[in-house]
Each structure stands twice: as structure tokens, then as C-alpha cells.
Computed example of a mutant assay.
Amino acid sequence: MNYLDQKVVVITGASSGLGAASARALAACGVRIVAAAIDGPGLNAFVADLRASGVDAVGKVTDVTDLDESRALARFAMDTYGALDILVNNAGLMLFSNWADMVVNDWNKMIDVNIKGYLNMIAAVLPQMLEQKSGHILNMASVAGHQVGEAAGVYSASKFFVQAMTESMRKELGVKHGIRAGTISPGVINTGWADKVEDPEGRKAARALNKIAISPDDIGRAVVYALNQPANVTVNDLIVSPTRQDW
């Protein structure tokens, strides 16, 4: 059964990677898409692609590290469609480095996007969801939020944070307000992330790890599964990994 038809979903980090794959998979279920990303040209091209294939989609350039922009995105969804049913909190950064290299800029970038960005978007959509006594917040987590690698300490810490906050949300928002909250925890996915690592040794390790990666479309299908459930069912956490990933 399709519980998603005509639902309005806000997806952050939607111009590429997991966000774009999630949008395409949800669009096939009749979802109305509000795509957001910081990459304006990439976002515009992606939304134009969706619309050309008959998808009901709009886009808004948004920096989720800015609370005002996050709130403006939620208002944009309401102004456009008169509804806000689902948030897929996806915008994120995965930057590997060794502690001894002290790549503080990378640490701060991940904290700003992976933690503050998620919190900003939750603060942006929650008033509407509380008012309507329904909604679904799906936070993109990671297997790195279940176990830690030596070159991924700050990234893992950010994803442990996501797991902890989502479990707290589930116990409060789900139980008391009917607002579902859950996570998807991808393993190694080929989204081009390895080439964004600035630290040379970290980039080498990332590229080696990426050889076993699976496709963003595999996560798109998992997003649909997690969201396409009756109102009394919550998928708390769904781990999706390459078969050959040993952690």
C-alpha cells in the first residue's frame, strides 16, 4: 500500500547524492518534493530534471547552518503546497582526517552541517508538525554512528549525536504528539564524498574505502521503505551496507 501519495516532503542536500536519490525514489510514490541545497545551479538543474519527468517539485537554495534560512524553507513548503508532512534531514559532510593532523576547519564544518544543520531544520518544521499532530522526521545517520574508525572521530561523533537525538525525539514526539522520528544508517555509499576530503592521507583512505561502495539509489529505496508505513508504525533505524563492508 502507498501511504506517501501526495505527501509533501522537504529534503535537504537534495541536489546530488543521497538527497537526489531519495527525492527520485519518493517522487515515484507520488510525493510532492521541496528540494533544498546550498548549491544553487545544481539544485535548479535537478529540480528542472524532476519537473521535466512529470514530478511535482520545487526547489529553494538553503544553507541549513543558518536558522533563518531553515525556517524560510519550511515556510516556503507551506506557502507552496499548504502542507508539510515529512522532513528528510540529509545535508551532511563526511571528512576523514587523523587526529594528529588537527584539521580543525574540517571538524567545524561537520559540526555546523551534521549537527547544527539538523537541529535547525527540526526547529523549522516542528511548529507545523506539532500544530497538525502528525509528521515524520527522517534523519540521515550512518554506520559511523554505531561504531568508530580512527580517521573518522568527529564524523562518527556527529552521527552518534544524530542517533541520540532521534531516539529522544521518538520517545517524546512520537509517543506524545504522533510525530514519527527515525534514522537511515548507510554504510559506504559512492556519492563522490571521497574526493571532498582535504587531508591527503584522509583522502587516500577514503578512496580506498570507496571501492566497495554501493549506489545512492540503494539508500533511496530504504528511505521509501522507512517512510511508507502506516501512521502507527515507525522504522527506528535502518542500516544499509555493502555486502563486502566488514564493519
Rank of each mutant, 00 (worst) to 15 (best):
N2Q: 13
L4D: 00
D5T: 06
K7C: 06
I11M: 00
S16F: 07
L18A: 15
G19I: 04
G19C: 11
S22K: 08
C29R: 03
R32S: 02
V34K: 01
V34I: 10
L43M: 08
N44C: 05
F46N: 03
V47T: 07
A48W: 00
A52S: 11
A52D: 06
D56A: 09
A57D: 03
K60L: 13
D63C: 02
V64K: 04
T65C: 11
L67F: 00
D68F: 03
E69A: 15
A72N: 12
R75T: 13
A77Y: 01
D79P: 05
D79V: 02
N90C: 09
L93M: 15
S97G: 04
A100H: 15
M102H: 08
V104S: 02
D106P: 10
K109V: 02
M110K: 01
M110C: 11
D112I: 08
D112T: 05
I115D: 01
K116Y: 09
N120P: 08
M121A: 06
A124M: 09
V125K: 00
M129C: 03
Q132T: 12
K133W: 00
H136D: 10
I137A: 02
L138P: 06
N139E: 02
H146W: 07
V154W: 12
V154C: 03
A157G: 14
S158Q: 09
F161Q: 06
E167S: 14
K176Q: 12
K176E: 08
H177N: 12
H177F: 15
G182N: 02
G187R: 12
V188W: 13
N190R: 15
T191V: 11
A194G: 10
K196S: 14
E198Q: 14
E201D: 15
K204I: 12
A205C: 08
A208Y: 11
A213D: 13
I214Q: 14
P216R: 13
D218W: 02
V224R: 01
A231H: 00
N232A: 08
V233G: 05
D237G: 04
L238D: 14
S241L: 14
Q245S: 01
